[in-house]
Amino acid sequence: MADSPIAVEHHNPALKHHFANMEQQREASSLGMWLFLATEIMFFGGMFCAYLIYRYWYFPDFAAASKSLDITLGAVNTAVLICSSLTVVMAVRAAQLGKRQEQVVYLALTLVLGLAFLGIKGVEWTSKFKEHHIPGPTFNFEGSVPGHPDQPVDQHHAQLFFSLYFAMTGMHALHMIIGVGIFSYLLYHAWKGKYTPEYHTPLENSGLYWHFVDIVWIYLFPLLYLIDRKK
């Protein structure tokens, strides 16, 4: 590498030979990560689109089904994710400033919060399972349409709501599980002191991923839990 005409910067071992310098390498990987996130936006976008159409068509039944979700657990989980986003930015900042110990602490906190989210989600899903709100042959949703006590909820429409609920929160949870895996890897390497102010691209890009998953939940919470809570 020493005789390469483009290796002008000091020889950081993390600099790959096809980049002119660390700055260019960092920007290229950041752009790549954003392109990946663009595909993720379209992936979740399809589910959001299906959800919005059916919500528009079967609004009263969707509102009734939405009311059976635990709003407290949903709000707590939103707060947990927002806190984990803060610990992620603080971990990235610690890496930028070269503080290894802080980095490790914030990454560990992120992992704890991520697992807490998944735990709460597990509690919610368990109660849905016990209430027979899982779509399938044993599905049963008792209750009436909000504002119309004499009008029972259409079972098919309620089932559609829960299909979308499990598909969307399920895909979100899968992203969280992958995120926990990625952050365990980061924690190990941060512990080893791999991420320095010059090179911490994995930390930065994983942070972008984590924030994206947070944003998906920021939309899922009001759309799924808060359809019609007025009465």
Binding site: I71, A75, T78, A79, P222, K230, K231
Partner: peptide, 11 residues
């Protein structure tokens, strides 16, 4: 987040 949850109960 608190505002979103709170305002949902207002008609």
């Amino acid at each position: 987040t608190g505002v979103t949850a709170g305002v949902a109960f207002v008609d």
